[in-house]
Amino acid sequence: MKSALIADDHPVVRAAVKILLKLEGFKQIFETSSGSEVMPIVREQRPDLVVLDLNMPSLDGLDVLSRIRASGEACRVLVFTSQEAMFYQDRCMRAGAAAFVSKTNDLEHLHKAVHAVMAGYSYFAQLPSTSVSLNTLQRSEKQMIDTLSDRELMIFQYLARGISNKAIGEAMHLSHKTVSTYKTRLIEKLNVVSSVHLRDFARRNHLI
């Protein structure tokens, strides 16, 4: 009997994914809206498939991915997210995901990904060649973004959205001081004048 876990903090998305999984023959479907609840459910219920969003409260999807891989659990993970594939697909692949599907795509892509993953294959988008699709500024900025750690990238997006250090710390279980250190490091790594310019940088690269 095939089972799955849907980890997404949007009820409407969970409902749509649940319908699709039922059509794919999944009989047991578990749900959670919190990243920190994924591992306890995975350990207890042993789902065959985890459909995972990257933006979730308490623990982001990339952290969840690395914990699933480290645990040795046999479930396969399909990342279903609104995050930009250009910056996140390779990270998810390295962290052990079997598939990456953008929420901006038609649900048919999710259907194909589920089918591929359960048949033992992977499912990743063919990304355009950066030398062709990006201008010189975007190429150099993408290279800078690629040097960020997963946590730095997540904090960068929070900051670019105008979220306060305190709120970021609460969301990621970090101290205010630690978030402030990350902010300083990001300003240096991305070669911007101040945190105000982080938003423009993120917007140019479709990260917000």
Rank of each mutant, 00 (worst) to 15 (best):
L159P: 03
G96Q: 00
A15Q: 13
S129K: 14
E24C: 12
E31F: 06
D150K: 02
V179L: 06
Y158M: 06
N205G: 05
Q157K: 15
L20R: 00
V13C: 06
Y123F: 15
R203I: 09
S180W: 10
G120C: 10
I68C: 01
G35K: 00
A15C: 07
M56P: 04
A15G: 04
V132N: 14
K2E: 02
G35Y: 02
L20C: 03
G169R: 07
M144Y: 02
L78G: 06
V132I: 14
N165W: 06
N105I: 01
L190Y: 09
E84S: 12
V196T: 14
V193H: 13
Q45L: 00
I41C: 04
I41S: 03
R76K: 15
Q126D: 15
G61Y: 04
F124E: 06
L49Q: 01
I163K: 11
L190V: 10
T81W: 03
L148Q: 08
T104F: 13
H173D: 14
L190R: 09
I187C: 01
H176P: 03
R69Y: 01
P57T: 08
K22V: 03
K22R: 15
N135W: 12
V117Y: 07
R203A: 09
P128G: 10
A113V: 11
R46H: 05
I187G: 03
E170Y: 10
L107Q: 12
Y121E: 15
I68F: 03
S3F: 06
V193D: 13
I187K: 05
K112I: 11
T81C: 04
I19T: 14
